[in-house]
């Protein structure tokens, strides 16, 4: 009897894979769920400067005309400054006011931004993001692009753009502004929104043609 029992136990020498299989089958869906398949990118930025800082040590020669392009964004639109002068409001925009006003002037962007922030803080991520997107849609990105390509035509070597904003302007709006001002698109001017957003970059070889790819953030002091 004893011999027979030993023989049986020796006969089942195979490794039992079922528990390992169970573990693996549980681990795979768990990892698949926790991994977010997103491509992460970066934007190179130059350090912020205060508008009331000391004068630059390097003085340009007198005959050289410095562009010193600045785009300031607030709840009313974009104010563009070049050569130390503020550009007047475009046609159809209220005077006095920003150079490029909102495309939907009846919208209260400040209230929308505050609403979006409140929703995001309270945990309503979807509602907050939707409101933030709506607020960003109120800006006239096409007019900004058209204006900047016009300026680039006159200052071909210039790559720096100073970006300034009201303190409560969300980070997403600044990133969008950098996207619009970074590269040239297929055409220099656009009218239609769907054409503008689906346009590809104008490429010279593999690299896109530059518009103003070096953003410098600046904060109005006070």
């Amino acid at each position: 009897m004893a011999k027979g029992r030993r023989d049986e136990s020796e006969g089942s020498g195979d490794l039992d894979l079922a528990p390992i299989m169970n573990m693996v089958v549980i681990l795979i869906p768990l990892l698949l769920l926790s991994i977010v398949f997103l491509k992460v990118g970066v934007i190179n930025i130059t350090a912020p400067k205060l508008s009331m800082g000391p004068p630059s040590e390097e003085k340009p020669p007198d005959d050289e005309v410095k562009l010193n392009l600045t785009v300031a964004v607030n709840a009313a639109g974009f104010t563009i400054g070049a050569q130390n002068a503020i550009l007047p409001p475009e046609n159809g925009c209220p005077t006095p006011g920003p150079t490029i006003c909102l495309s939907a002037q009846d919208k209260d962007v400040n209230a929308m931004l505050e609403g979006a922030r409140a929703k995001l803080t309270s945990g309503d991520a979807q509602g907050g993001e939707a409101e933030l997107r709506e607020a960003m849609k109120a800006y006239d990105w096409i007019a900004l692009y058209n204006k900047l390509t016009d300026i680039k035509g006159r200052f071909k070597e210039e790559t720096i753009i100073n970006i300034s904003a009201d303190p409560n302007i969300p980070y997403a709006l600044i990133i969008r502004m950098m996207d619009v001002t970074r590269y040239k698109l297929e055409k220099d001017t656009y009218k239609d929104a769907s054409q503008f957003w689906s346009a590809k970059y104008k490429r010279a070889g593999k690299t896109p043609e530059l518009l103003f790819p070096d953003p410098v953030l600046s904060l109005p002091k006070g």
Partner: peptide, 28 residues
């Protein structure tokens, strides 16, 4: 994405004071 511009510049200014002078903004 909803971070106010003021806070972003405060963080960048502080990093600049800590001798970090090259900035990269991570995005999706």
């Amino acid at each position: 994405q909803s971070t106010p511009f003021r806070l972003v510049t405060e963080v960048m200014y502080t990093a600049g004071q800590a001798e970090l002078s090259m900035f990269k903004f991570a995005v999706v």
